[in-house]
């Protein structure tokens, strides 16, 4: 494929809390090519959002990147200061947030919030030009441009999400990270939005990272899929591979937890137990307390994240050869 724009290597991120240190992201590595879309999937609390926030270094006060590299077009973000990060944010990497309902500032007109980004990054100070650009963006995401002079509370949930997408696209970024972009919406709006995002991505030719707990959503829009569990990336392969030849038992479990409309009928299985408390991660493979195939080695040693052939990476002592 084309050029690699993002290379994440051994990224490790901790939260310091009252109760102790939480390793939210542990030794995560992946790459992203230009124009490619990557899906990150996992249960809530597995570190997907932490990975996304780390990429832009949007860290909470108590979060710290302990190690690793985030190379964007050759520049490592990790050592950069907040001020040095600023030009990259939104201009190169933008985000569509999980809680789109609240990610617009309630006291400013939606259009002005987009214009603000245009002013900052593109130096578009002329009001008329900036409004022209917002009109383009609104049309692109399927919103009436007249809405730009309204306030967020006058929008419906779906409209807000579209506005947030328009805002994310405003500076022509190289990469858009969509963090659960459709979770709060009803299914029909969800589907329409996802398709539109996908179309926009292909039209503009930007890269994308989708984050969701719903593997069906991810599969629809991603070229490659990464599965996360308890702060670790446990499997990474093309969408096709993940669906037809999953290697990690967790991936298998995730997929059997979701119904398939087109595939053959099968019983839905739920995964017993809860994801581990990251304050005290389990020894060895973090999945072993819930894994039906766990053996002694799983409890003691951490499996290596290695290639199982054809760029299909997984971290497991007992790779599954099942076909779903």
């Amino acid at each position: 494929m084309s050029e690699t724009i993002l290379r994440v290597e051994n990224l490790t991120m901790h939260y310091t809390t009252r109760a102790g240190i939480v390793s939210a992201v542990d030794d995560v590595s992946f790459t992203l090519d230009e124009g490619e879309s990557l899906g990150l999937v996992g249960e809530s609390g597995c570190g997907k959002t932490s990975v996304a926030n780390s990429l832009l270094k949007l860290l909470a006060d108590n979060a710290v990147i302990k190690g690793g590299q985030i190379r964007f077009k050759g520049t490592d973000f990790v050592p950069l200061s907040e001020e040095e990060m600023r030009p990259y944010r939104w201009r190169n990497i933008s985000m569509v947030f999980q809680a789109a309902m609240n990610s617009l500032n309630p006291v400013y007109r939606v259009g002005d919030q987009i214009i603000e980004a245009l002013e900052t990054h593109l130096g578009l100070y002329s009001h008329a030009q900036a409004r022209q650009r917002v009109t383009e963006l609104f049309t692109m995401v399927g919103l009436d441009p007249a809405l730009m002079d309204q306030y967020p509370h006058e929008y419906s949930g779906g409209m807000r999400q579209r506005a947030v997408i328009a805002m994310a696209l405003s500076c022509n970024p190289d990469l858009v990270i969509a963090d659960e972009p459709t979770t709060a919406l009803d299914v029909i709006v969800q589907d329409a939005l996802l398709r539109q995002l996908k179309t926009l991505q292909e039209m503009i030719g930007m890269s994308m990272i989708y984050i969701s707990h719903d593997i069906a959503v991810i599969a629809e829009v991603s070229d490659r899929i990464g599965v996360m569990y308890a702060g670790k990336l446990v499997e990474l392969a093309s969408a096709d591979e993940i669906f037809h030849h999953p290697v990690h038992p967790y991936t298998v479990a995730l997929m059997s937890a979701f119904p398939s409309v087109t595939g053959p009928k099968r019983e839905l299985q739920t995964l017993a137990g809860e994801p581990p408390n990251l304050l005290y991660p389990p020894s060895g493979c973090r999945f072993h307390p819930r894994c039906p195939f766990a053996t002694e080695i799983c409890r003691q040693q951490e499996p290596e994240f290695k290639d199982h052939g054809g760029g299909h990476y997984a971290a497991c002592w007992h790779p599954q050869e099942v076909t779903v």
Partner: peptide, 17 residues
């Protein structure tokens, strides 16, 4: 702690703004 502050940070706005 509001989400729109995270958005503003992600937008790469200057601290003062």
């Amino acid at each position: 702690r509001e989400d729109y502050i995270t958005t503003a940070r992600a937008k790469g706005l200057p601290e003062k703004v």
